[in-house]
Design a protein around this nucleic acid. Structure first.
Length: 755
DNA sequence: GAGCACTGC
């Protein structure tokens, strides 16, 4: 009998419940529900009830109204099927196209069957992006007629909108769940975990899939749903098969979108930007009213196309005012201030004269409009078939952005953007043959395109012993893993056997690249942890410098005022300190050509990192004397970034990176007033030529002193760099030999670096 | 004398 189930004790009137409206079989809509054996029919009845089963409060009129809208979602009509498949399986793969309602409805269905609130558990639903986690949680709280942050909540970096003991449905970013797994590898608080947007294959989702597959074997009480929008479900079904030769069950729901007619060019287009502009103008001249979405690859390209289209469209309108209406161009990319991003939701311009042809809006966007942002009213999509994609070269340890052809999946996603409100058209600026034969099926998952130093440290922290044999959905190149292990070993986060050191354990707790974490953790030894904390925060946010094309001189002059000639890292410190000294004032930022948004973010990151430091008793200290302070900071930088050092070669401004021997130049944004012989750099960027960016002068003695393993000269390739270091070493050894007590100046670091 | 696809902790 249901009432004998201890999980349902609180639903049993004889044993008494916590609710104020003491539940009876008559008024508790969940009375008689057996966890994970609930049927669609039972759930529908409960949904229609006048009482909210999770709060025992009467439903508001709003609830009924929203419920009627929910009933129209495709996923709603397959409720019986879902409850059956959920009852019968531990792992389910679900495919739901756009508009199916999967993200909002499936987690609620799960709650009605899993009844997490009766066993002190939670249902988690992960999202790749913060905004999605927040906005979906808000929507679902409304649908369930509860207050956001109570029964339904969300958890993202910087904001935990949940109430322990009350929240049983939690939306969260995939990265956040990964963090939680580091402290609780069994993820005991969850009864069901739903991975949404799995087809996007973010680094965090990929790692979670591997962890959860293994965890599901240990925790047979844990249910797992992997939700994806495209038809690559078979890959996930195979990956998550529990029995040899079988695949995980598939639950499929159709979408609700309008048809999109796709057009191809007859011949390949040699200049896709020019072709795109031409196509937009053709649509404007010849097609029915309806807004246009054009995909380009980056800020510069977008701003350029905006200007050109504007000029041409104005010409067209002036030549033929009776048949061509006004056109507005709206750029869209992530570094645009939110206020300007909002412009994409503006209505199209009105006709120039009351009876004239209607106006049209064209949004020119990066990939941000492919997944993150949805613009209603788009009827025409222009897809040149390119995007900037991250690529990682493990040989030289460099991540860079490359304009590359998109995948078929991506092209389909783009086309779909034309059919959200009514039937649309998609103009692909490549041939049908190229689409069929040349484009990859799927975009390569992020795990194959990234530096994995961070990920490897996380995996080791998660207790994964054999990284090469970890059950990846797609295994990264062994060389990428080796590079990550090598870096972590040099940083003393891993010992020579690949085991996590105490230092590595603390590094993993910081939401930072390992180099930054290392530098922050050792900084108290140099008495400059306050300053390193600031520098690390500044390096973790987008570029703070604003340089409008029309005011380059003014912006450069303003930057000069804040520049510290010893190094760009010190300049970043100075910028933050001035920002605080000026009361974090937006006007001051504006006048100084600084991004108030980025500085605000740096402040936020700094506060979070400071809380982490306090947790591990890492002291926050400063040296008063500013000369000594600056030297100390530069020493601490070396402890994290000794693998990113360059040595000047000749007088032409060329540098060679240490060990890799890449020829690089100081980036023009660099504020150093001379060209020091030895520099440490934060980034290697490959644009018109190889540059190093965010650069600070260091002394070669520090390299030998603070990173002796890496600067073991017997491992160095022959060359001027090695000879220069050898000279420094000889000088140093000469001095040491003359010393009576033989004190080793390396002592304070060697202690740290071993374990 | 140049740039910053997009996320996430």
């Amino acid at each position: 009998m249901a009432t004998d189930n201890p999980y349902l004790a609180h639903l049993n009137p004889k044993k008494g419940g916590k609710s104020s409206a003491s539940p009876t079989p008559g008024n508790n809509p969940l009375y008689g529900f057996l966890p994970r054996r609930v049927t669609g029919e039972q759930a529908r009845k409960a949904l229609e009830s006048d009482v909210n089963p999770f709060t025992m409060q009467p439903h508001t009129p709003q609830y009924k109204k929203i419920l009627e809208a929910r009933k129209k979602l495709p996923v709603y009509s397959q409720m019986d099927e879902f409850f059956k498949i959920f009852s019968e399986n531990q792992i389910i793969v679900m495919v739901g196209e756009t508009g199916s309602g999967k993200t909002t409805q499936i987690p609620q269905f799960v709650c009605y069957s899993d009844l997490p609130h009766t066993k002190g558990k939670m249902v988690a639903c992960t999202q790749p992006r913060r905004v999605a986690a927040m906005s979906v949680a808000k929507r679902v709280a409304d649908e369930m007629d509860v207050q956001l942050g109570k029964q339904v909540g969300y958890s993202i970096r910087f904001e935990d909108m949940t109430e322990p003991g009350t929240t049983f449905l939690k939306y969260m970013t995939d990265g956040m769940l990964l963090r939680e797994a580091m402290n609780d590898p069994e993820l005991t608080r969850y009864s069901t975990i739903i991975l949404d947007e799995a087809h996007e294959r973010t680094l965090a989702t990929d790692i979670l899939m591997g962890l959860l597959k293994t965890l599901a074997k240990r925790r047979t009480d844990l249910k797992l749903i992997v939700m994806s929008a495209t038809l690559d479900a078979l890959k996930f079904q195979k990956y998550f098969s529990l029995k040899h030769g079988e695949v995980a069950p598939l639950f499929k729901v159709p979408g609700r979108t309008h048809p999109v007619e796709v057009f191809y060019t007859q011949e390949p287009e040699p200049d896709y930007v020019e072709a795109a502009i031409r196509t937009v103008l053709m649509i404007h001249r010849a097609e029915e009213p309806g807004d246009i979405l054009l995909f380009l690859t980056g800020e510069e390209e977008i701003e350029d196309a905006c200007r050109k289209i504007k000029i041409e469209a104005d010409d067209l309108m002036n030549q033929d005012p009776d048949s061509v209406g006004p056109l507005v161009c709206i750029p869209l990319y992530s570094s645009l201030p939110p206020q300007q991003q909002q412009r994409i939701f503006d209505p199209p311009p009105p006709p120039r004269t009351p009876d004239g042809p209607p106006g049209r809006k064209v949004v020119i966007s990066t990939n941000i409009a492919e997944t993150s942002l949805t613009i209603d009213g788009i009827v025409y999509v222009v897809d040149p078939g390119f995007s900037k994609q991250k690529v990682y070269n493990p040989r030289i340890r460099v991540e860079s952005l490359l304009v590359s052809p998109i995948s078929k999946a991506s092209a389909q996603q783009r086309a779909g953007r034309a059919g959200r409100t009514r039937p649309g058209k998609c103009f692909r600026l490549y041939t049908e043959r190229d689409f069929m034969k040349e484009l990859e099926e799927q975009t390569h998952p992020e795990i194959l395109r990234s530096n994995l130093a961070n990920t490897v440290l996380e995996l080791v922290k998660l207790g994964i012993k054999d990284l090469v044999r970890f059950d990846y959905v797609d295994a990264p190149a062994p060389e990428t893993l080796m590079r990550a292990l090598e870096l972590l070993n040099f940083l003393a986060a891993l010992d020579d056997d690949g085991n996590l050191t105490a230092l590595g354990g603390i590094m993993a707790e910081f939401p930072l690249d390992p180099q930054l974490a290392k530098m922050l953790i050792v900084s108290p030894e140099f008495k400059c942890s306050n300053e390193i904390l600031t520098i690390v925060a500044m390096l973790s946010v987008p570029n703070v410098w604003v340089r409008p094309p029309s005011q380059r001189k003014e912006a450069d002059a303003a930057k000069q005022m804040l520049t510290v000639p010893d190094g760009d890292h010190l300049t970043l410190l100075n910028v933050y300190n001035q920002y605080v000294a000026n009361g974090q004032d937006k006007n001051w930022c504006w006048q100084s050509y600084l991004s108030a948004r980025a500085l605000q973010q740096a402040d936020n990151v700094r506060a979070q990192l400071q809380r982490n430091m306090e947790k591990f008793d890492i002291d926050l200290v400063s040296i008063q004397d500013s000369n000594k302070l600056y030297t100390a900071i530069r020493m601490a930088l070396v402890c994290g970034f000794f693998m990113q050092v360059a040595h000047k070669e000749g007088e032409k401004g060329n540098y060679l990176t240490v060990k890799d021997n890449q020829v690089v130049a100081l980036h023009p944004s660099c504020g150093l007033d001379n060209q020091p012989e030895w520099v440490i750099f934060h980034e290697f960027v490959l644009t018109t030529r190889p540059y190093i960016r965010t650069v600070t002068e260091v002394r070669p003695e520090w390299l030998l002193e603070f990173a002796p393993q890496y600067f073991d000269l017997s491992t160095f390739p022959d060359g001027e760099t090695k000879r220069a270091l050898q000279r420094v070493l000889n000088k140093k050894q000469g001095k040491a030999a003359g010393r009576v007590d033989g004190t080793n100046s390396d002592k304070r670091m060697t202690k740290k670096q071993k374990r």
